[in-house]
Amino acid sequence: MCDHQPTARLRDWALAACLTAFSLFGSTPAGAAEGAVPPAAPAKSAYSKTGADTCLDCHDEAAVAGIFKTAHGRPTNDAGPFGHGQLQCESCHGPGDLHANGKGKTRPHLIQFGKNALTSKAAQSEQCLSCHRGTAAHWGGNAHAANDVSCADCHKLHQAKDAVRDVATQTDVCTSCHQARKSDAMKSSHHPLREGKMACSSCHAPHGSTAPAQLKKDSVNETCTTCHAEYRGPFLWEHGPVAEDCANCHQPHGSSQPAMLKTRAPFLCQQCHEVQGHPAVSYTPDGLPGGSGTQRGAFLLAGSCLNCHSKVHGSNHPSGSKLMR
């Protein structure tokens, strides 16, 4: 039984009606930004009569023609925009008859791509996804989509070489936005990104994934052990935080500490281990060469805790419960 008073019900439906009206009259067509074009070309434009031949009458500059060096510009690729029976330039840029035949201010623009495009970011990406949904299955829920980043912000389709698809140059593209990551790669302990031997996409799935931080694999550990399989285990003696998440101790983007650790040993280890005996002892400069506490040096210098507990990722020795063997 409804317990709402009539006035309350009226108020609810009035609110709903207002929201509907506001939505209908206040919104622009789906996917479009304020002042931007809709995802398809302006409403009543038709496609051109002769396809790319029409476009190249004007757009014959080298910056455009680079696409003919790429998979998109192959006439024998039936699935590509220039394949037999495809819409060529208008596959991506939308119907262009009005654009081709218009003059001056009456010439409507087509679907544009890139950072300064008039077309909304969502509409740009939707154009790409109409063919590439398979490589970006998780695009809709991903952080790039949520932050209004479109495919063309990273991919340069009219360039013979798309920098973001090249291991040696991809990092420059990613760090143009993720600038702190560029700083991280400058630290003394880092993965070889600035040396061009790894790329961000070696670990991350920029088109989206269901893992944390858009990792390629289902978890942090599965991603790390793709290359570092020696730490995959399972070991006879496991180390709990290692089995759970490599990033408990490591900063994979780079660190000023050895082995990309968050903090160096012994202090990192002592954030968890306060066992009676040496783990619970305060290590001070007395343990440095020339200090008064030389017997403590082995706990502090060179590999610190790892001088003995070198099997911190896990040990397969029957006497390895302390991760020393």
Binding site: A46, S48, H84
Partner: peptide, 22 residues
Amino acid sequence: VATEAAAPPDTSEWACSACPFD
């Protein structure tokens, strides 16, 4: 409103003579 799209043309004869195919 948004899905009001243009009808696709007959592209079977589109060849692109001006395209500098590699």
